[in-house]
């Protein structure tokens, strides 16, 4: 295990990078007009000013909405610890309002080392949430609610054919609690439905600010930057210097190749999200020749073929 070759270690580094969204999206964070900076400004503003806020992050799936949000929250937590606590909910898991309230209570309990009661009723949980919100307001701390798959929170009640009052009850009670109590809270909804704000019913919409941040698939320039950033090995790692130089030279070489541009083009025709690009790079890196330890253009070509598979055709052919 200790006797790993440089190429194996390089492979390990690359794979770690590809599977770590923090690394990948931090590449986007430096420019001032990026979504990262906007989002950070919005949230830190409401943290320092001590006001309520709400916003929606919209964009097609796989473009790093939640990843960038995570990055922002991590940075903010580092900058002002003890000021922020984050509650994360997912529309797929907690769209039922009872479960959502329970999950909020559970996360708050585990954050403040309180004993969480599983049998607490939904009313108890909502009381608890309001009490905590009030305390937060008094202590000038900000609670951040992250609602992933926001559209599902708006849809759940329709299927249950509840009374009118039951519609979007969770969102309503959350937003209403924020307004009625003197609190500091930020609600961030994340959705890949661009019309997510239209799904809100009137009483919820009026309590929701209509701030929207649009996340778009990366442009060609960004893809190339990402490519360079992910595949270039760091010079200060434990890897031998000459190997790193050779590897990076090869990557630069490939990056300048016209054929690579064609490959990236074909890739972005079907799906231009970051996630698809990462999947592609993952395959490339997996196919890396461990003997020479270098990536070659053939790796890229093979990977794009394996991504463009046509499963139905394969099964029909039976081979």
């Amino acid at each position: 295990m200790e006797a790993q070759t440089p190429s194996e270690r390089a492979l390990n580094i690359l794979r770690r990078r590809l599977c770590d969204p923090n690394f990948i999206f931090s590449a986007f964070s430096d420019s001032p007009d990026s979504n990262y900076s906007k989002l950070k400004y919005l949230i830190s503003d409401s943290v320092t000013k001590g006001c309520n806020n709400s916003m929606l992050l919209l964009g097609p799936s796989g473009c790093g909405k939640i990843e960038i949000l995570d990055l922002v929250l991590k940075d903010l937590r580092n900058e002002n610890p003890e000021m922020i606590s984050v509650v994360k909910l997912d529309g797929q898991l907690h769209s039922d309002d009872n479960h959502a309230l329970k999950e909020i209570a559970r996360q708050l309990c585990s954050e403040h080392k309180l004993l969480f009661s599983k049998v607490a009723s939904s009313d108890d949980n909502s009381q608890f949430m309001i009490a905590v919100l009030r305390e937060y307001g008094l202590a000038h701390m900000t609670m951040i609610f992250v609602l992933d798959e926001f559209d599902l929170f708006t849809q759940y009640q329709f299927s249950k054919s509840c009374s009118l009052q039951g519609k979007q009850r969770f969102l309503y009670s959350l937003l209403d609690a924020m307004q009625s109590v003197k609190s500091q809270a930020v609600v961030v909804g994340v959705s890949c439905r661009l019309d997510a704000d239209q799904l809100l019913e009137k009483r919820v919409r009026s309590r929701f600010s209509h701030r929207k941040l649009l996340f778009l698939p990366p442009s060609n320039g960004e893809i190339q930057k990402l490519f360079d950033c992910i595949l270039t090995l760091p010079a200060d790692s434990s890897l031998p210097d000459d190997y790193v130089i050779k590897f990076n030279a090869k990557i630069n070489n490939i990056l300048g190749d016209q054929r690579l541009k064609e490959i990236l083009n074909t890739l972005s025709v079907s799906d231009s999200s970051v996630r698809q690009f990462l999947k592609f790079l993952f395959r490339v890196v997996c196919d890396m020749d461990t003997k020479s330890g270098l990536l070659s253009l053939e790796n890229f070509q093979a990977a794009v073929l394996s991504i463009q598979r046509q499963p139905k055709l394969e099964i029909q052919r039976g081979s």
């Binding site: 790993q4 390990n12 794979r15 599977c19 990462l278 999947k279 993952f282 997996c286 499963p311």
Partner: peptide
């Protein structure tokens, strides 16, 4: 190759 060497993370794999 996709599962990778020791201690290296992987993306979910779908075999069909």
């Amino acid at each position: 190759r996709l599962v990778g060497p020791l201690n290296s993370p992987m993306l979910p794999l779908y075999l069909y």
